[in-house]
Amino acid sequence: MKLTFEVLLPALRPWVANLVNVWPAYIIKPQYANWEVLHILALTLLGGTAILMNLRLLNVGITEEPPSEIYRNLRRWQDLGVIGIIVSGILIGMANAEKLYDSTAFVVKMCALLGGIILTYGASRPVARADGAVSGSAKLWFLLGALIWFAGVVIMATGALINVGLYHVITAAALVVLIAARGRLRWIYLIGLVALIAVQQGITHGVYQGDDIAHLDPVNKVFTWLYAIWIVGAGLVRLLLTRREERQGAYVQLIAWSGILVWITGAAAGRWIAFE
């Protein structure tokens, strides 16, 4: 089944169809491309600050300053990014409402937006402000935000035509683990990852022909699982190692990873609306 807002709220179609005629959508429509640029700029501001703040929670980045200092310096810029994506998103969304109403990728994007706001403001920022101390409420917000984000990932993984977009999230996760892992773990992880890519390419380009979808599809799905297991596995090994050696809590690391990847999921889903 194709999960869209049309399926969830079928009675809304006349209202959605009319949104383009409502102020300010009819003004935005001819200037659509300019507002898209604003949407992208806001996303870079939000994403860049999320990356820096959450990497600091993983002891990477500006380690000369405590996480609370990173938070203090970046929070207003991050607020600007969040307000920017929401305002520009509502405007371009109104001008393009019916397409979004019929889009599964848009459902994923909204899950990522809601999950991202909860994870960022409920968990990631309070933990950074407290220099890594995780309060009870931060844990609760993390669990709620991660659940909504996970729901979005599942919808994306099961959506025909958009599930390929999940490779953006997998790639980002692979890079975050590579940046955060250290010493021998980093090398073992990297060699394993390169080996997986080489074997997948060998099978999909050497064993089967490019148009043999019947065989290629299951092979690619198996490898997607293998990538996910390898990356998450390496992340968990890092988590166990640092928890013992540096007393860096498991919750802090999970919050930091999800605080970055949730926004990448939103961006990937947003781009995939066009390819759906």
């Binding site: 992208i40 870079t44 939000l46 860049g48 390929v164 490779y167 926004w263 781009r271 995939w272």
Partner: peptide, 21 residues
């Protein structure tokens, strides 16, 4: 092609987001 295009856009977050700071 879609993956390349999507990666190009999403990597902007890493590139522009950090250079802006």
């Amino acid at each position: 092609w879609g993956l390349l295009e999507g990666t190009h856009l999403i990597t902007l977050v890493l590139f522009a987001g950090t250079i802006f700071v």
